[in-house]
Every structure is written in C-alpha cells, then in structure tokens.
C-alpha cells in the first residue's frame, strides 16, 4: 500500500519535473527562434543602415581607418550634391514618364484582352490562349536580340517609344486578369446586355471595380519594372535625354577605385531607393500579393 503511494508520489514528481523541463525547453526554443530571426533581420537591414549613415558622412570621416557607426557631422549637403551630380531630377522625370505611359497603355490592352478571353466567344479562343501561355516559357533574352534589331530598323533608337512599346503586352497579366474576370458571374454581363449597356460601360462600371486589387498589383509591378529596368534601356536609349534612373545612377558613378566621393554616391543610391520603399510601405499588401502570384521581379 505504502509502496504504491510512494510510487505515485514519485511519478507525480516525475511528471512535474518533466513538464517544467518541457516548459524550459519551450522557452529556450522560443528564445532561440527570436534570436535567429533578429540576427537575420539585422543582416538584412545592415546594408540599408550602412547606405544611410555613409550618405551622411563627410568624405574625410568616410575615409577614416576606423569606421564610425554614426556620422559625427551630418552632411545633408551630400544629398543636394548627389541630386545635381547624377542629374537625378531629369532621370526621375524620364523614368516617371516611361513608367506612367507604359502602365496606362498596358492596363488598357490587358483589360481589353482579358475581357475578350473571359467573356466573349470566338473561334480558336482556347488555341490562341494556349499559344499565348506557351510564349511565357521562353526566356526574355531570345526576344531581346530581335527586338533590338526591330527597334533599330524602325528608327526608334534613343526614343521613349523604344522603352515603352516592346513591353506593353504581358501574357502573364492577361492571364491573371482573365482568371479574375471569370470569377464574376456571367449573368451580370447578360443582364447588362439585355439592358442595352455597352461593353465598355459594363467593363468600366462592373468588371474593373471588381478586379481592382489585381489592377493595382499590375500597376505597382509595372512601375517597379520601369524603376528597376537596366538592360533594355542600356541597349536602346542610353543617351542623356532618355536615360532611365538605374542607368543614370550606374553611369554617374563608374569610378570604383581611387578618389570617388562615396558619401555622395550613397546619397544618390538612397534617393533612388526611397520612392520604392515609400510605395512598399503604403501598398505592402498589394505588392506582396502580386509578387507571390506572379513570381517575377518588376
């Protein structure tokens, strides 16, 4: 009798120590998780921190053998210098112009095509759609070579047209929007037809508002694309009047050795990076949604 009692007590104690052990283990695990995540977050953030503090240092302070982690004297003047040196004002306007025009035209084309594929019946619809999707598998470099020749032969070299027109149609955006349009019940369209509503009015009043999140995602990705494009503009429009912001930034600071003014360079990089961050912080949801569905960068 007493034996079983002691055994019970022992077991209880055993269970208690085990739960305490598990709790300690759990807390340790959680702490470990947080430490890991925070360290990784610091590594991710470090380049941004380094960019900002370097951009605010004087050249003398930047060149010190022992680095400082906070500028002793904050040099806002670096930003003004960067802005004029890299001619960021003009680059900004060029990029904004190309981005806005290509976004608007691209949205119109995408909406019209997606509408045709989602709502209208015509011969060869499935075949055509399948053929469009098939082109998505081919790497862009194959197109670039011929498009470079086409743009050249059309006399579009060093024009905004060359930067805008070849990329207006994205099969992927058509696909994305078509999926979205197909979720809208067909009855709505037929009812609108009975009432004598025109297609355009129906699109504008019903379909576009319902597909707005997709359209916003497309807009952001398209603008980001213009902001980050580098290779194509370098090939077809790398002159001062049409230069895009990334090309201008890279060209303004080619000197990787010697006496380059790195704080000014970092200030220019910070200015170029800032708009993207602002857009991201405001429209985080749309960007992350758009990216996870499309899997493309810009």
């Amino acid at each position: 009798m007493s034996n079983t009692k002691t055994m019970n007590v022992m077991q209880e104690r055993d269970v208690r120590t085990r739960t305490i052990g598990q709790k300690i283990f759990k807390v340790l695990g959680k702490t470990g998780t947080y430490i890991f995540l925070l360290v990784m977050a610091l590594i991710i953030l470090f380049p941004f921190y380094w960019m900002i503090i370097s951009s605010l240092k004087t050249l003398a302070e930047y060149r010190q053998a022992v680095p400082t982690f906070w500028p002793r004297q904050i040099m806002w003047g670096n930003y003004a210098e960067a802005f004029t040196k890299a001619n960021l004002g003009d680059l900004f306007m060029n990029t904004l112009y190309v981005g806005l025009v290509s976004t608007v035209l691209s949205l119109v084309i995408t909406v019209l095509s997606a509408f045709a594929f989602a709502r209208l019946e015509f011969k060869g619809k499935e075949t055509l759609f399948g053929a469009l999707l098939a082109t998505m598998m081919i790497p862009g470099e194959l197109f670039t070579i011929t498009n470079y020749i086409t743009v050249n032969n059309l006399g579009w070299m060093h024009t905004f047209t060359a930067l805008i027109v070849p990329f207006l149609v994205s099969v992927f955006y058509i696909y994305l929007l078509r999926q979205n349009f197909m979720q809208i019940p067909n009855e709505l369209y037929l009812a609108a037809k009975v009432d004598g509503t025109s297609d355009i009015k129906y699109l504008w009043k019903v379909m576009i508002p319902l597909a707005l999140p997709t359209l916003i995602s497309i807009t952001i990705l398209k603008m980001m694309g213009a902001w980050n494009s580098y290779i194509w503009p370098k090939l077809v429009a790398n002159d001062a009047a049409h230069q895009m912001i990334t090309n201008g930034l890279r060209n303004a600071f080619t000197d990787t050795t010697g006496q380059a003014n790195y704080p000014v360079q970092m200030a220019a990089v910070a200015i170029v990076s800032a708009p993207l961050f602002l857009v991201f912080l405001c429209l985080r949801k749309y960007i992350m949604q758009g990216v996870s569905r499309s899997g493309i960068k810009g």
Partner: peptide, 27 residues
C-alpha cells in the same frame, strides 16, 4: 461577337506578333 472579340484583342495580338512571335523565328 467574333468581330468584337478580335477588335478587343487586336492591340495585344499586333504587339505580340511583332515583339514576341517574330523574335522567336528570327532569333
């Protein structure tokens, strides 16, 4: 309807023919 569908698709198709389909063959 057929006519309308092709009208809506025409900008996309023309651009795709010039900047996507032709490059595949030409390259």
């Amino acid at each position: 309807h057929q006519w309308k569908a092709w009208l809506y698709l025409s900008p996309a198709i023309i651009l795709l023919l010039v900047f996507t389909v032709w490059p595949i063959f030409n390259t």
